[in-house]
Design a protein around this nucleic acid. Structure first.
Lengths: 193, 193
DNA sequence: GTAGAAACGAGACAAATGTCCTCGCATCCG
DNA sequence: CGGATGCGAGGACATTTGTCTCGTTTCTAC
């Protein structure tokens, strides 16, 4: 788990072996089985989570129990509830595993310590934040301007891995449409060819 | 224009008079008449823009000329195209004025200089980024999980000022529905009472 | 390997939303 | 002051999307 992270972060940031050791010393490794939860809504999200293997979903639920996926996180990506993590408030989100997954976690205090003491890590997280902002804007634009079919096509194009691995009803939940709509779209595309 | 900004920023960040002067020395003031553009798609967005008075929209257009509003910015808020601003790439967004507006602008280089030399300003922008991320997540969640009526209600609740000042078809464009849908919702609400 | 659960597709119908059009009113500007 | 324009409303109809439900297939855990 940590070795995969080390490989990834070395490629993304300029870090010395000593830096890596320091980061390692604060890391918590964790395995999650399918459907196992890392965070239930109502709990405080105490960790920033790196996914070294597997597939994780971060989602909200509404009154009637419907689930709405805010983010999929596969290998070499991150998740957390930023608000709960930052302000120690109860989270409104759930995080669980779609596949058996392997994670590396850091607490807020440890992460803050690492970031202030490792400039290369700070640079990396700044980049990460910039690009996540950009993805947010793209997603909003797609949401307000595209048809369901375009949204689905964009999703498949941007996340071919995830669209192949996540069940269809979860993709629907991510896109904000029903399972039915998505099957219709797929059917139409097959016929269209 | 700058005085309004100074009042605002003093309330938001811990800055000395000297800091304010320094920020002032880099600021560019600009007035924009209704429908006047600050940025056309294809241009590079060279400024981070503070709105001291008026109402600004930031939007994308699609093939058929439809407009999709990414953000409204009224007094005491900011806008820019973050990607174009950051990387000097041609913007895909347009920025224009819904009302006669007064703005204060800074270039990227000047802003970077100010942020590195004024810690209080850095703290302020970090906070701003955090809260804008949080708003993005809320908006995405609303987009994928709410009915058009709920989206409209949320918008009115969260931005009563803007919903009163922006024309209905622009609110529709922000929410990702047609003007028609919005008038229907309003009509239904009136009847419902 | 097998039992149970999960995922998928689809039919029938209902509801929501979009498209295209016209109208009327207010406002703005020459 | 008068014509042009922007804006909101709404009728008529088409299209999209959702709901509910069922049966089949596929996957998974033991």
């Amino acid at each position: 788990m940590f070795p995969e992270f080390a490989t990834y972060i070395k490629a993304q940031a300029n870090l010395s072996d000593h830096d890596i050791e320091l980061i390692h010393s604060k890391a918590i490794e964790k395995k999650l089985r399918r459907k196992e939860f890392l965070l239930h809504q109502g709990e405080v999200c105490r960790y920033k989570i790196f996914i070294s293997k597997g597939l994780i979903r971060t989602y909200a639920t509404r009154e009637q129990g419907s689930e709405h996926i805010l983010r999929f996180s596969a290998e070499n990506s991150w998740t957390t509830d930023p608000e709960s993590f930052e302000f120690d408030t109860p989270s409104s989100l759930n995080i669980d595993a779609i596949e058996h997954s392997e994670l590396v976690l850091w607490t807020k205090d440890d992460l803050r310590y690492l970031i202030t003491n490792i400039p290369g890590l700070k640079t990396y997280f700044d980049k990460l934040m910039t690009s996540s902002g950009s993805l947010f804007r793209q997603r909003i634009l797609s949401n307000i301007s595209s048809t369901a079919e375009e949204k689905y096509e964009d999703f498949v194009k941007n996340y071919p891995e995830i669209s192949a691995r996540a069940p269809l009803h979860m993709v629907a939940s991510y896109l904000g449409v029903t399972r039915k709509t998505l099957t219709r779209i797929r059917h139409a595309q097959v016929k269209g060819k």
